[in-house]
Design a protein around this nucleic acid. Sequence first.
DNA 1: TAGTGGTCTAGACCACGAA
DNA 2: TCGTGGTCTAGACCACTAA
Lengths: 240, 240
Amino acid sequence: MNVVGLKRTEGTLKHVQVREYVRALIADAEPGSSAPSERELVARFGVARMTVRQALDVLVNEGKLERVPGRGTFVTHPRRRVGRLSSFTEDMRLRGLLPESQTLLARREQAGPGVARALEISSGDSVIHWKRLRRADQNIVCVEDAYLNEVLLPGFLQAGMPTSLYEALGERGLRPTWAEDSISAEVATEEEAGLLEVAAGAVVLHVSRRALAQEKVVEVSRTAFRQDRFTLYVQLGDVG
Amino acid sequence: MNVVGLKRTEGTLKHVQVREYVRALIADAEPGSSAPSERELVARFGVARMTVRQALDVLVNEGKLERVPGRGTFVTHPRRRVGRLSSFTEDMRLRGLLPESQTLLARREQAGPGVARALEISSGDSVIHWKRLRRADQNIVCVEDAYLNEVLLPGFLQAGMPTSLYEALGERGLRPTWAEDSISAEVATEEEAGLLEVAAGAVVLHVSRRALAQEKVVEVSRTAFRQDRFTLYVQLGDVG
DNA sequence: TAGTGGTCTAGACCACGAA
DNA sequence: TCGTGGTCTAGACCACTAA
C-alpha cells in the first residue's frame, strides 16, 4: 500500500487531511458507491484508525457518508432538505416563474413601537420602509411591506433598490440565516384588495416574517398573498 | 474517586451509559454551567478517555454541550431552533393550551389514487383513515383528515386511538423526522364550516402534510384551521 | 473465511486558560 | 503551574456481511 506520509508540521491536522481527501473523493461520486474503507485509509495515510474514524465522523454527521456495519462506508443518496429559507425571488425562480417587483414606496422612516420591537431596536430609530407589489409571470401574487434595520445597512436606499432583497443583503454579508414566519388566513383589507386586484372581502394568505443574520434582526415584513395564486411550501425537520 | 464499574454484559454500551448519565445531569442544568470534565468521567466510570469523548461527541452534535479548549465542557445556551416538526398536541401544549381530540372516523380503507400517490403505495392498499375534530382549551381549532400507511402500523387501529398521533408513532419507532407542508388560505367547504362551527364561506387555513419516518411516508393529512383561532409559526434555517 | 464497521483500552504530547 | 479539551497511537475483540 502506498503510504502518503503526512507531516504534522505542515500545519494541517491529520484528521483534517484525511477528511478533505475523502471529501474530494466523494464529491463527484455516485450516490451509493463505496468510500474507501477505514483500514484502507489507515494504510494510505499511515495514521491510526481512530484518526480515520474522527475524519469520517464529520462527513457522516454532514450526511455525506453512511456507515453500514459489516459492509462498508458509502456515499449517501441526496437527502431531503429541511426548512429552506428562500426569498420571493428565489422561490418564484424555483417554480419556473419570472419574478418581478414594483416598488410602491421606499424611504427612511422612524420606527414605530411595533416595528421597533420586532427589529429589536428603539422607537424612533431609522428604518427603511420598502413596500412592493410582486408578480410572477406578469401576474400579481402579493404585496409586501418590509422594514429593514438601517443601522445595519448604511447607504442601502441610495444604492438603488435591488430586485432581490436577500441577494442584496447577501452582498453585504447579511443574508438571513434564520427566520420565523407567522402564517394565517385573513380577509383582505380594502387596500390589499385594491393592490392585489381582488374583490373586497377576498381571502388572502398572510405571512409575517422576522429574519435574522448574524444573530441580529435585519428584516421584518408582512406579506399578503393572493389565495388563488400562491401556496406556501415548507419543509420541516425533527428537533435534534 | 468513586468508580461506578460498568458491566458490558448488562447490554448497554459504555459510551451510551456515559452519554445518558451526562444527558440526565445537564437536562435541568443552567445554560453555561459546567459539565463534568472528560477526565472526571473517565475516573467515575472507569473507562478510557476516547470512550468518554465518544459519548460527549453525540451531545455536542446535538447542540446540548459545548467544548471550550482549555476551559472545559459547558451546557449550551438554548439555540434558535430550525423548522421544528411538531404535532398538534405538542404545539398546543407549547402554547399552554389543553389539546383535545374527538375522533369522527377511524377505520381501515383502501387507498384511492391520490392518497396512494402521496403515501407512495399502490391504489387499493390498506390505509388507516383517521378524522378528528381538535380542540384547545375546549375551543374548536381544526378538523384533520389523516391517512396512515397501514403496512407500517400493524394493529394500530386495534390498539385504540391515542391522543397524540406522533407520540404513538414514536413508540413504534416511526416518529416523523421530516415533513413537507403545503399551506394555503381557503374558503371553508360546507362540511368544514359545519364541523368548525363557522359561517358558510368563512376563511380557513389549510395545511396539507406529508410526513416521513425512516425514509418512508407514514402519514399524509389535510387540516383545516379556524382562521380566528390559529396562526401557524414556522422557523426556517438556511440551506446547509 | 476474510473484510467491514463498532467498540474500547491505556497511554501520549500539545495548546490554551486560569490561578 | 495545573487542569482542560484536541489530537493521536497501536493495538484489541466483537458482530455482521459477503463470498
